[in-house]
């Protein structure tokens, strides 16, 4: 029965399994070619790519966390709230440990990262408990939590920005390594992306959250601890968000309760565009990473055309999302029909 569905060669197998990823690659390539033809000198510069690589990790990290939640069939709307709260607390910490001459002791930056990750983990666990134990639908739980975290951030700062940070932190994160080539932000992002790739593809945790996202009841009946998996997932998302907050802290050299509020929906857009199903159980990290690149390339590319308002990016962005969905709809639709119309049981 599946004889006819067998792919012919390895290449087409690869394509069939990663159709979405291939489509994203095609769009990115098309855009790169377009930029090469129209604005080669302004776009293809080292500094341009370095700038992009230092900017996208902010929301890229948050999107990775949202992806994990969406694989379980949930969502995380509190990423930006967590990022800001973590950044504010870290900013307080950095100011507190600053030396009298404005420099930072050697332990400060690692400790700041540890602190931010701990904050992210705690807030993420809070989300996870609301979702798993209290059974609030994830969209509402993380929405409420987001408001709450932002509220705490406002109360802590009176709504003002925490600035005048010791300069050492921003300098360290904004520097470039490996022969002054690779921005530190990119290193952080790559490290986190690799860890998540490993978790999803090589560990039992990954297998389990994909199955949990596919069918939570069946997961429970297979002896998985759904609650614990969910708490872990939201905790990871919280840590990713907090790291995103650390990058924001460095990029803006200040922290504030309302920084990056557009990222909430943008992260979801990225994740969906990356091929993760909002219903759960489906999606690859490669798709999400490509979607992050695509967003940054589009935005930076458009900025190279001074006559076009950079605000068009949001229009293009939404348009691309809708287009991809409609494309998926038509290809899934025809595939779905083929599958459905096959009789359920072949002859014994």
């Amino acid at each position: 029965m599946s004889g006819m569905a067998r792919p012919k060669g390895t290449l087409s197998t690869l394509y069939a399994g990663n159709r979405h990823v291939f489509r994203l690659v095609a769009v990115i390539l098309a855009w790169m070619v377009f930029m090469a033809l129209t604005r080669f000198e302004k776009f293809y510069t080292l500094i341009n790519f370095q700038t992009m690589a230092s900017q996208f990790p902010e929301f890229g990290l948050m999107a990775l966390g949202v992806m994990l939640c969406m694989v379980t069939g949930g969502i995380d709307l509190s990423t930006v709230g967590i990022a800001n709260l973590a950044a504010i607390l870290t900013a307080f910490f950095l100011k507190a440990v600053a030396l009298p001459d404005g420099g930072l002791p050697a332990y400060a930056i690692p400790a700041a990262f540890a602190l931010a990750m701990a904050v992210g983990a705690v807030l993420g666990v809070f989300n996870g408990l609301l979702v798993s134990k209290v059974r609030i639908p994830p969209i509402l739980a993380t929405l409420g939590a987001s408001e709450l975290f932002t509220g705490v951030a406002i109360v802590l700062t009176n709504g003002n920005a925490v600035s005048k940070l010791p300069i050492g932190y921003a300098t360290a994160i904004n520097s470039k390594v490996l022969g002054n080539l690779i921005p530190v932000q990119l290193i952080v992002f790559t490290a986190v992306a690799l860890v998540i790739w490993f978790l999803l593809n090589r560990t039992t945790y990954g297998v389990k959250i994909y199955l949990l996202g596919t069918n939570a009841t069946a997961a429970r009946f297979s002896g998985l601890s759904n609650d614990r998996l969910l708490v872990k997932t939201y905790m990871l998302s919280g840590i990713c968000a907090a790291l995103g907050g650390m990058i924001m802290l460095a990029n803006y050299n200040s922290a504030r309760a309302n920084y990056g509020s557009v990222y909430v929906l943008q992260c979801i857009l990225i994740v969906v565009l990356g091929g993760v199903s909002p219903a759960g159980g489906k999606g690859r990290i490669s798709g999400v990473v490509l979607a992050i690149f695509l967003l940054r390339l589009l935005e930076t590319g458009i900025n190279r055309f001074p006559q076009i308002s950079s605000y068009y990016i949001s229009l293009i962005w939404g348009g691309v999302l809708l287009l991809v969905m409609v494309l998926d709809y038509f290809s899934d639709y025809s595939a779905g029909r083929r599958l459905k119309r096959r009789p359920a049981t072949p002859a014994p």
Binding site: I139, L265, I268, L269, V272, P278, I308, S309, Y311, Y312, I313, S314, L315, I316, W317, G318, G319, L321, L322, M325
Partner: peptide, 18 residues
């Protein structure tokens, strides 16, 4: 959820861009 997220982005882009 996804559609309105997309159109929200489009509407905003129309307003601020166009």
């Amino acid at each position: 959820m996804i559609v309105t997220l997309g159109t929200s982005s489009v509407f905003k882009g129309l307003m601020q861009g166009a």
